[in-house]
Structure formats: structure tokens, C-alpha cells
């Protein structure tokens, strides 16, 4: 059985991904990138049904003709399947696939400077989001954060756990009630997602960090929340830079 059309919160997140795409893409390719990234981040998952073409085109602010081009590209890539008729529409078929070699190559090619730079931005977004969330999060937001922290701890699959970790970061921004911080957090997470995938993360520290962030927000302590969130992002980026340095040196040895 297919799911019903995706929830409006998933659609909202999909729309917030706009602007994170690489420069120089045409409008149709921007939408391909947006949907692909949403699949990558687990915002859209297998079996999810996209809204009707006219609704989706209107939400994305593009013409139905341009959207059809985007959907055709996604079909060619095997990421969606489209059926005709009254119960027709486009359904997400599978997760974007990368080989370990591709992922390692990507992390090697991303310089320490670039990693540090995105880490600086990520830490700024995360600490301000957590600070505001400590003042503004409602019980539902807090429950959602606790749920994500627990799911992160319980998920065995590396890539799935990474998706939950990144969703936790976005949820802190959502709890800050700022759509701009949420959009910025989402875009940073999108950029980092595939860089993380080839690596086994420092999960025990992540679990502790998540708990510290949730506690500070729950205890209404903005200062603690900001410090905990910044530390979490910084240690993650430091870990990625470590892996980048190692991969670059190993590459030199084998070259």
C-alpha cells in the first residue's frame, strides 16, 4: 500500500532547502537538487507520495512544464516512479546511493578550510538556535527533541543514524521558532550529510551532547544550551577534519 501525500511539514522542509543548491543550475535542476537532497536527508522516504503536479509546482513557485522536466530527471535516476490515473502521481522509490569510494573521495576533496568554514556557520546557527529554543520551546518541541535523541541512540544503521542526528539539529532550530535559522540549519546539514556518510561517527559523544542540549533547553537555560550546541557541532567538524587529513595522507602514500 502506498502512503498518502507527504505531510505539510515535510513539504515545508523541502521548500526550505531552496537556495542550498550549487550555483549555475537551471530552475528544473534546482528542483531536482531540492528533492534529491530531501531524499538524502530522510525528509522524503521510500513510498512517500508527492503532491499533485499542479500543487507541487505552485508550492515550488515554478511552472508545471518546468516541474515535469524535474520529475523526468528524477525518474531517469530511478528515484521516483510516476503512475497515471486518478490514484496516480509520483512516489519516492529509493534512497540516493553512493559507494564508499565516492564518499571517501568527496571528503578528501573537501579542504580543511572548507570544512572549518561550514563548521563555523553550523556552530553559529546551532548555538543561537539552542539559546532561543531554551526560551521558546513548547512541551511538544521538547518531546520531539527527546524522541529524536532516543532514536539516534537506538538506530543501528550508520547512515540512518546520521540522518536522525541531522534531523535533531534541524529540530532545535524549529524549537527556536525561527524559520530563517531552520532554513539555514537545514542547508548546512544538507551539505554535511554525504560528507558524514563514509565515516563511522563519534557516536558516544554525540549521544552525550544531544542529552546535554535537550536538558539545557528543558531546564530553560539559554547559556548552557548555546554552549552545549556549539560544542556538539565543533567536535563533529573536528572529527570530519581528522578523517579528511587521514584520507589525504593515505592518498599520497598510494599515489
Amino acid at each position: 500500500m502506498e502512503n498518502a501525500a507527504i505531510s505539510s511539514s515535510a513539504l515545508d522542509l523541502l521548500l526550505l532547502l531552496r537556495g542550498s543548491e550549487p550555483e549555475g543550475l537551471g530552475r528544473a535542476d534546482q528542483v531536482v537538487y531540492q528533492i534529491e537532497t530531501a531524499i538524502l536527508m530522510g525528509i522524503l522516504t521510500e513510498g512517500d507520495r508527492l503532491p499533485t503536479e499542479s500543487t507541487l509546482a505552485a508550492e515550488l513557485g515554478i511552472s508545471p512544464i518546468t516541474l515535469r522536466q524535474s520529475l523526468a530527471t528524477l525518474r531517469t535516476k530511478g528515484l521516483i516512479e510516476t503512475s497515471r490515473g486518478r490514484s496516480g502521481g509520483s512516489v519516492i522509490r529509493r534512497q540516493v546511493e553512493f559507494s564508499d569510494t565516492q564518499l571517501r573521495k568527496k571528503l578528501r576533496a573537501t579542504s580543511t578550510e572548507a570544512l572549518r568554514d561550514i563548521g563555523d556557520l553550523g556552530a553559529a546557527i546551532a548555538s543561537m538556535s539552542a539559546r532561543l529554543a531554551a526560551d521558546r520551546a513548547d512541551p511538544q518541541n521538547i518531546e520531539h527533541l527527546q524522541d529524536l535523541a532516543k532514536r539516534h541512540q537506538d538506530t543501528a544503521d550508520e547512515r540512518a543514524r546520521r540522518r536522525v542526528d541531522s534531523r535533531f539539529h534541524v529540530a532545535v532550530s524549529i524549537a527556536s521558532q525561527s524559520s530563517r535559522l531552520t532554513s539555514a540549519a537545514l542547508q548546512v546539514e544538507a551539505e554535511l550529510m554525504t560528507l558524514w556518510w563514509g565515516q563511522l561517527g563519534p557516536d558516544e559523544t554525540s549521544v552525550e551532547h544531544h542529552a546535554a542540549i535537550v536538558d539545557a533547553i528543558k531546564n530553560r537555560n539559554p547559556e548552557e544550551a548555546a554552549i552545549a550546541a556549539e560544542r556538539h557541532i565543533r567536535s563533529g567538524i573536528e572529527f570530519l577534519i581528522e578523517q579528511h587529513l587521514r584520507l589525504t595522507m593515505e592518498h599520497g602514500e598510494n599515489a
Binding site: S111, E113, A114, T248, M249, G252, E253
Partner: peptide, 17 residues
């Protein structure tokens, strides 16, 4: 010269963690 490119030269030459 970008630091990204120079970093590669440095690390491959150094081979020390």
C-alpha cells in the same frame, strides 16, 4: 594559490599524524 591545493601538497609530503 589556494590553501585547499597547498594543503594536499603539505599532507602528502609530511606523512605524519
Amino acid at each position: 594559490l589556494t590553501l585547499a591545493n597547498l594543503e594536499g601538497v603539505f599532507l602528502r609530503a609530511l606523512q605524519l599524524r
